[in-house]
Simulated assay, not measured.
Amino acid sequence: MVLALVSAAAFGTNIVSAQIAGQAGLSGPLLVFYRVLLMLVLVVAAARAWRGSLALARDERRPVLLFGLATALVGIAYLSSVAFVPVSVAAVVFYTFPILIVLAEPVLTSAPFRADRLAVALLAFLGVALVVGPDLHGLDPRGLALAMLASLGATAQFFAAARCARVATLPKLFWSHVVILPVTALVLLVTGGFLPPQSFLLAPVAVAVTYAGYVVGFLFQILALARVAPGPAGLAFCAEPVFSVAIAAFVLAERLGPLQYAGGALVIAALVTNVILEQTRRSVVPA
């Protein structure tokens, strides 16, 4: 759970800086394409430095393929949705994924349905909605559809990550990004949004923070998902928008209202309750 919270904090930083980069003319798919290249370079360098293998066993290939496709869908759809709707609206729609995970978990895994976990997920979602304070004026159906697609992608990503939990970290990082690369390249080709690396000089600090947040966030995410079931892990990532709003308030001098503080308190309460429930279940050993 600690790994998941560190990942959420890193991704929270990533969203704020990606928004600043977007305002400078750097699109979501463009940022995704180059961050995939960066991750591949870093993983290959790490494998050479530690003499690690990047090979996958035959039974590991399909789960990693599904994980890579779902990850590509999340990154492209979520970062693209903010071109059509406010970030707050995209965030509220996207963060339905913890609820979807809780509902899908009894169907896709052997875990039983837990009403208390669903209640915690709904509490966390309410907190997220209050924190981001969605602007409901002039909504574009394309942005809503992309944000919902990202939510479905995140749901699939968590279950795919659980299926490849035993895959070593470096091969999982490498091959999932090998899958993501052609998907993002195709999107850039269709949208005509490709720009050379020199374009990052339009917002160098924002791009650097975006990529650092992604690398740290993604690494800790896969480490967390290899150790925590999709349900409780999804709830932990509800902390991401709280971190985003707090960072935006600090960096961009945005003022927070009473509802945002109340929403943050609800998310924190949901996270604490989630941890307590999981610890309680683990302490109950059947006879």
Rank of each mutant, 00 (worst) to 15 (best):
M148Q: 14
F11D: 07
Y214G: 10
A111P: 00
A83V: 02
P86G: 12
A47M: 05
A49L: 13
A4E: 00
P134A: 05
A91I: 15
A49D: 07
C238W: 04
T109W: 03
I76H: 01
A161T: 06
F97K: 01
V64S: 08
F243W: 06
G127F: 08
C164P: 14
F33Q: 02
V251E: 12
A45R: 03
I268S: 00
V285E: 15
L123E: 11
A206S: 10
L225G: 00
I276K: 15
I99D: 02
A111D: 00
R62N: 04
L170A: 06
E254R: 14
G217S: 06
I76Q: 05
V179L: 08
L149I: 08
R58I: 00
P171Q: 10
P204A: 03
S176Q: 04
I101Y: 12
L259Y: 00
L66C: 04
K172E: 02
A224N: 09
P141Q: 13
V36L: 15
L256F: 11
I180M: 15
Y34N: 01
P29D: 07
L118G: 05
A72D: 12
L219P: 08
V128M: 05
L195D: 07
L38M: 12
A104P: 08
L139P: 02
W175I: 01
V131H: 04
L188V: 11
Q19D: 05
I276Y: 15
L144F: 12
P197W: 02
P196N: 04
F194N: 08
H177S: 09
V209Q: 00
L201M: 15
E278W: 07
V89T: 04
F113K: 07
L149D: 07
L38Y: 09
M148I: 00
V209F: 02
G192L: 03
D140I: 10
F218T: 07
S110C: 03
A265I: 08
S283D: 11
L26Y: 09
H177P: 03
A47T: 04
F67I: 01
G213D: 03
A162H: 14
P112W: 07
G257S: 04
L123Y: 07
A45D: 10
L186E: 08
V74F: 04
A248F: 04
I222K: 08
L256Y: 11
P204Y: 07
A147Q: 11
F158Q: 03
T109N: 03
R117W: 11
L170V: 05
G234C: 11
A233C: 08
Q198S: 15
V16Y: 00
L195E: 12
G143N: 13
V93E: 14
P204R: 06
A161M: 13
L201G: 14
L225K: 06
L103E: 09
W50C: 11
P171D: 03
Q198W: 12
A111G: 06
S53F: 04
K172N: 09
P86A: 12
L189I: 14
A119W: 09
A224H: 01
Y95R: 02
R117L: 11
L56I: 03
V272C: 04
A239D: 01
C164L: 05
V216F: 10
